[in-house]
Design a protein around this nucleic acid. Structure first.
Length: 334
DNA sequence: AACAATTTCAACCGCAGCGAG
DNA sequence: GCTCGCTGCGGTTGAAATTGT
């Protein structure tokens, strides 16, 4: 019989997301949350499969994402965690707030692997490379100990991944046990990284029945309400509901008399003409700025900023930590 | 300036895991 | 215990960007 495909693929769009699609997805999730990824595309009017929507949200549009390269500290954490967990990227990501498994995986494959090899460390075993391997690395020639002629880098990578999988399979339980009970050899213990449980991260709407000042909201949120689930594998299965439950966030916006009407501004030009990511030239405000809801600076600004005459615009420098090379998006105040 | 080679990373694919019935 | 449907994960791909010649 075979499995049903994750979605009816006929007529569904694939490939890079357009600004319009992003807008639709964000608007829908922020106003409705996502009850079910499979149903979301239909409800939101997107010609994408639910899986694609989920991925786009989690890896790119989620409000609490950090953008830009991993810091040295984050990189070191990834290395430490990888030494213990292997290629379990979602687990690794769950310890790095604002980072996704995909991002970490990519960073590992493109940066960290090379870095470790340069340092004479085998990225798979985290042990020093043999002299021969190290010298080969130094020469920039990659040859496996088992001769494999003109294996492409891709094949080489596949081999290593297979090996990695096997190694991982054998040691998985030991590792898990080790992680649960002890610190790593360099003193870093992932158990020290706090993971929040869902009850810690939901907005306390009951308390918001009372009148709040803007500062109340921001303080409330900054303390613990908006936090990073960091990856889909964290304590709750619903990314949005764990960060900002859709209907609660809507209530919050309603109560603040904020109409969630997204305006799309280029990160490098918030007022003029724009060139969107796909290279199309827009003379309307039509690209988006990512928000920095992780620490709610942008929210802070749009709640408190008097300078924008009603129209909230991304928080400039404050946003840059997350935005960097990305566009970002903003709200309009009524 | 033009082209080739390499690198990066967003997005896709297939499978595993899990809960519901 | 089995099947089904959904979600999440990890591996892979390929277009775009960057670098080298």
């Amino acid at each position: 019989m075979g499995r049903q495909p994750c979605c009816d693929k006929v007529g569904l769009k694939k490939g890079p997301w357009t600004i319009e699609e992003d807008k639709k997805l964000i608007n829908f999730i922020l106003t409705n949350g996502h009850c079910c990824w499979r149903a979301l595309p239909k409800l939101s009017g997107l010609l994408r499969c639910g899986k694609s929507c989920r991925l786009r949200w989690i890896n790119y549009l989620r409000p609490d994402l950090k953008r830009g390269l991993l810091s040295e500290y984050e990189e070191q954490m990834v290395i430490d965690l990888h030494a213990q967990l292997g290629n379990r990227w979602s687990k690794i990501a769950s310890h790095l707030p604002g980072r996704t498994d995909n991002e970490i995986k990519n960073h590992w494959n493109t940066h960290i692997k090379k870095k470790l090899k340069k340092l004479g460390i085998d990225p798979l075993t985290h042990k020093p490379l043999s002299e021969e391997e190290a010298s080969q690395q130094a020469q920039g020639r990659k040859k496996s100990l088992v001769p494999h002629d003109d294996k492409s880098p891709k094949q080489d990578q596949e081999d290593k991944q297979t090996k990695d999988k096997q190694d991982q399979h054998h040691t998985e339980k030991d590792l898990e046990k080790n992680i649960m009970t002890s610190a790593s050899s360099d003193g870093f213990c992932i158990d020290e990284v706090p993971l929040l449980s869902p009850h810690e991260i939901l907005i306390d709407i009951s308390s918001s029945q009372h009148h709040h000042t803007n500062d109340d909201y921001v303080n409330n949120i900054n303390t613990s309400k908006f936090t990073s689930p960091s990856s889909s594998s964290s304590s709750t299965s619903s990314c949005v509901s764990s960060v900002v439950p859709g209907d609660e966030f809507s209530k919050f916006l309603d109560e603040m008399e904020i109409n969630l009407d997204l305006k799309w501004l280029s990160s490098d030009d918030s007022s003029g003409e724009h060139i969107s990511k796909d290279g199309k030239f827009n003379n309307t405000v039509d690209t988006m700025d990512l928000w920095d809801i992780n620490d709610l600076n942008s929210l802070d600004i749009f709640l408190n900023d008097d300078d924008h005459d009603g129209a909230f615009v991304g928080n400039g420098n404050g946003c840059s930590r997350m935005v960097l090379d990305q566009d970002s998006w903003t709200f309009d105040l009524l």
